[in-house]
Structure formats: structure tokens, C-alpha cells
């Protein structure tokens, strides 16, 4: 199965009453990669994950998970994956340590030593009852249970939304280790710095459709580079630039990466003294898809 995608979704739709949560979603997650699943609240990230888990049934379209059908083969597939929901609710009378053990055993086994390590790394007190935990600590319980399970695929739905910066760093280190040991991770998030730091490839979802998918470099390639320069004189014609702003001898503009090679000679000819070229940040990529129109 090496080389075949861990997740393969095409044309997936799901409606809740009059609301169209997924509208022809396509998504491919390759085996062994950390895949960022980006989108604002309500874009359909959680619905996609819940369809993959067989908790919801898709209206139409094709979804394949680890080579199986998410609804029909759910139990067999669940043996090979672990899921951390975005909103972790625990049993009020069951302690965090018990919940970790329970979830691990329900998935078919838990590495005890790994549980101890993770408890220490995440600085979680396992003896508190479920109701006594804060949101972040509830999330740690679910994360530890998932990370201590021996699985091929991690499905994480905004797992760090309640974690403090220290714990987020621990989380990043853990995911990097998981990825290093060959596990596939689908990380749904809207924390862009996290995705930028962790993910090999990214899919951006908007209103139930994936609007952009690829490596960060590929996505940047599709986005304009911001150029600022100080020149002796401003050239009269700069083909293909956007949002040109001239302030005395300083200019700033955006340009498609493909056309940069045409522009640079013109700048050189204009006596460039300083020059900065900045590729789009993920944030700009993200905003580009979500702003009504710039």
C-alpha cells in the first residue's frame, strides 16, 4: 500500500437540512505526510473529519480512508487511526488517567511507558476527575490518548485551540516525532503558524470546497511576491505588476513569481540601491481566499 494515499476524497457533499456543509470537496492526503487542513470556523473541516470517522454519512461523492470505506469499514479502520476532537468532553466522574487508559484500550492497546512520558511532557495531572479539567487539559487527555496509541493515522481537529504556548511547543515536537516515525497526520487548524511549522502539504477549504491544495512552496508560487525597492529613478513601464505604490524614490508592488525575471532587469536598469522580495506568507494566502475582494 506504500505510495497510495492515506485519504482520498473526491466530490464529497453533505447537507444538514438547508445548510450545505460540504459542496464537492476534494482532498488527498499522502501516506506519511503531515497535511494541514485550513479553513475558518464553519468551512466544513469537522464535518469532513466526522465523515472520515463514519460518524456521519456523506450524501454523495467518494471517500477512501487507508484503503477502506469510512462508513462500511469503520471499525477496522479505527483500529489504525486515532482521533482528537476539537471539543473534548470527558466523563465527569472518570479521572483523566482512567480516560486515557479507556480510550487507548478501546483503540486496541496503549503504550504504558509512552503514556507516562506524555503525561510528564504535557504536565498533566491524571488524577483529576473529568469535570475538574480546563479546556486545555481536557484536550491534553485526548491528545495523550491518541499519541500513546500505536496507529498509522492521526486525525486532529484543531487540537491546540486550548493549549498555552508552552504546551503548543510540546505538541509541535510530538507531531514532528510522529511524522518522523512514518505516521500520517491530518491536522485541521486555523492557527497558521502551527500549520506553517508542521505541515508538508496544505489544503485550504472554503464553504465546503477545497480551494487550494499543495505544498507551501507550490501555494506560494501561485501567489504574488511583494517587492520593495529604492531606485535612482522610477521606470515608466513595469509590466505585470500590481498595486504599484511610488513614494519618491521608493517603490513597492506585487508581482507574480513567474514574471519576476522580467522585472528584475528593469529595476537594475533603474539603478536599484536596496531590494527586498518577500514571498507570500500563509496568512496572506489564507486571506486571499477569504477576503471578499482586495
Amino acid at each position: 500500500m506504500q505510495g497510495s494515499p492515506a485519504i482520498l476524497i473526491s466530490g464529497l457533499t453533505k447537507t444538514f437540512g438547508a445548510v450545505r456543509a460540504l459542496d464537492g470537496l476534494d482532498l488527498t492526503v499522502r501516506t506519511g505526510e503531515v497535511h494541514g487542513f485550513l479553513g475558518p470556523n464553519g468551512a466544513g473541516k469537522s464535518t469532513t473529519l466526522r465523515i472520515l470517522l463514519g460518524l456521519l454519512r456523506a450524501d454523495s461523492g467518494h471517500a477512501e480512508l487507508l484503503g477502506g470505506h469510512p462508513w462500511h469499514d469503520s471499525v477496522e479502520l479505527h483500529r489504525r487511526l486515532a482521533y482528537v476532537p476539537g471539543d473534548v468532553v470527558l466523563w465527569p466522574t472518570i479521572s483523566g488517567g482512567e480516560a486515557i487508559d479507556l480510550l487507548g484500550r478501546l483503540r486496541g492497546g496503549l503504550d504504558r511507558q509512552r503514556k507516562q512520558d506524555l503525561l510528564e511532557r504535557f504536565a498533566l495531572d491524571p488524577t483529576k476527575k473529568g469535570r475538574a479539567y480546563s479546556k486545555g487539559n481536557r484536550q491534553k487527555v485526548a491528545l495523550i490518548a491518541a499519541l500513546a496509541s500505536d496507529v498509522e493515522l492521526l486525525l486532529l481537529d484543531e487540537p491546540t485551540a486550548g493549549l498555552d504556548p508552552l504546551m503548543e511547543a510540546v505538541f509541535r515536537a510530538c507531531i514532528a516525532e510522529e511524522s518522523g516515525s512514518g505516521r500520517t497526520v491530518l491536522l485541521s487548524s486555523h492557527i497558521l503558524s502551527e500549520v506553517e511549522a508542521l505541515c508538508d502539504r496544505v489544503s485550504i477549504i472554503r464553504a465546503g470546497r477545497v480551494v487550494e491544495s499543495g505544498t507551501l512552496a507550490q501555494l506560494r508560487h501561485l501567489t504574488r511576491t511583494t517587492v520593495t525597492a529604492e531606485l535612482d529613478h522610477v521606470p515608466e513601464n513595469l509590466p505585470g505588476v500590481h498595486h504599484l505604490a511610488v513614494d519618491g524614490s521608493r517603490i513597492a508592488f506585487e508581482v507574480e513569481p513567474d514574471r519576476l525575471r522580467e522585472i528584475l532587469p528593469l529595476l537594475t536598469a533603474a539603478g536599484v540601491r536596496t531590494l527586498t522580495c518577500r514571498p507570500a506568507t500563509l496568512e496572506e494566502l489564507f486571506l486571499r481566499h477569504y477576503q471578499v475582494s482586495p
Binding site: S95, D101, L102, L106, K128
Partner: peptide
């Protein structure tokens, strides 16, 4: 005041039936 619980689950708490027993026994 809230009480503490054990750090590890007892052996029975490893199946849906075990969980159901735990949730219903009280």
C-alpha cells in the same frame, strides 16, 4: 469539594460494557 481519582484505569474499564457499567452503577 471535588475528589481525585486514580491515575490508571482498573482492568474492567476497557470495553463499552465496562464503561456502561461504570456510568450506570451509581
Amino acid at each position: 469539594p471535588p475528589r481525585r481519582g486514580p491515575a490508571d484505569a482498573p482492568p474492567y474499564l476497557s470495553s463499552p460494557l465496562g464503561l456502561a457499567w461504570r456510568l450506570h452503577r451509581g
